[in-house]
């Protein structure tokens, strides 16, 4: 097994997965998503972390778009499936910086809904552009998602706690999408994942027209 340069392997390969390994992975992924029970509003570092952790979880439009990125990565295969989790948080943080610095961006919420529609359709139609195009598309959408989160940061009880919670939650949702993407290795899994992609685009459309 080549361990020296996993992202730039000349013969990229996806791990061979059986249903015995895929199903537990998907179950664990949903377990990671299970929201924690917060009986009390926290303050200080704990409050900041909790607020930041729950912020991406609280918006269904955020969740479905980030899950769609993971699913799309699964369709794109190597190295996209592993490159996106490295690049996505950093680009999203750049959007967060724009929000923190109050640099105006137009129609943030609209574009977040559009991102869910577009990414969902990319999954549904198994759109496979060159890696650079996929990275730019997801990066652009990540900026708007990050902007929405970053705008809340100055009001957080603890900015660094909020940042840690926000980034960890975002990463876990992203991993959820990648894990669900492993379903493509199962019989009929591709159809299932494509169906999830279309469902995500419907959710995005519902947000876009203000129904959700």
């Amino acid at each position: 097994m080549n361990t020296s340069n996993p992202l730039q392997s000349s013969t990229p390969s996806f791990p061979e997965l059986s249903h015995r390994s895929v199903i537990p992975a998907v179950i664990v992924a949903f377990g990671l998503y299970a929201p924690a029970a917060f009986a009390h509003d926290g303050s200080g570092m704990a409050g900041g972390f909790a607020t930041g952790f729950m912020h991406p979880m609280a918006g269904l439009d955020h969740i479905v778009a980030m899950v769609a990125v993971g699913l799309w990565g699964a369709f794109l295969g190597m190295p996209a499936i592993w490159l996106l989790p490295v690049v996505f948080p950093m680009v999203m943080a750049l959007g967060g910086v724009l929000g923190i610095l109050n640099i105006p961006l137009m129609a943030v919420e609209t574009l977040i809904a559009v991102s869910a529609i577009a990414l969902g359709l990319c999954v549904g139609f198994r759109f496979r552009p060159p890696l650079a195009v996929a990275a730019v598309v997801t990066g652009l959408f990540a900026i708007f998602h990050g902007y929405a989160h970053g705008a809340e940061l100055p009001n957080a009880a603890s900015p660094i706690g909020y940042s840690i919670g926000f980034v960890v939650a975002t990463g876990l949702i992203h991993l959820l999408g990648i894990s669900v993407g492993f379903l493509t290795k199962l019989k009929r899994g591709t159809e299932l994942v494509r169906g999830i992609g279309f469902a995500i685009s419907v959710v995005g459309a519902l947000f876009l027209f203000g129904i959700l």
Binding site: T3, P89, M90, G96, V97, G150, L153, G171
Partner: peptide, 25 residues
């Protein structure tokens, strides 16, 4: 394993994102 090398880079990208936002604030 290759995924473990990626996990290291993912962890670094999370630290990057956190530090970027805190530094900006």
């Amino acid at each position: 394993r290759p995924w473990q090398h990626i996990a290291v880079r993912v962890a670094a990208s999370w630290v990057t994102a956190i530090c970027l936002m805190v530094a900006a604030l």
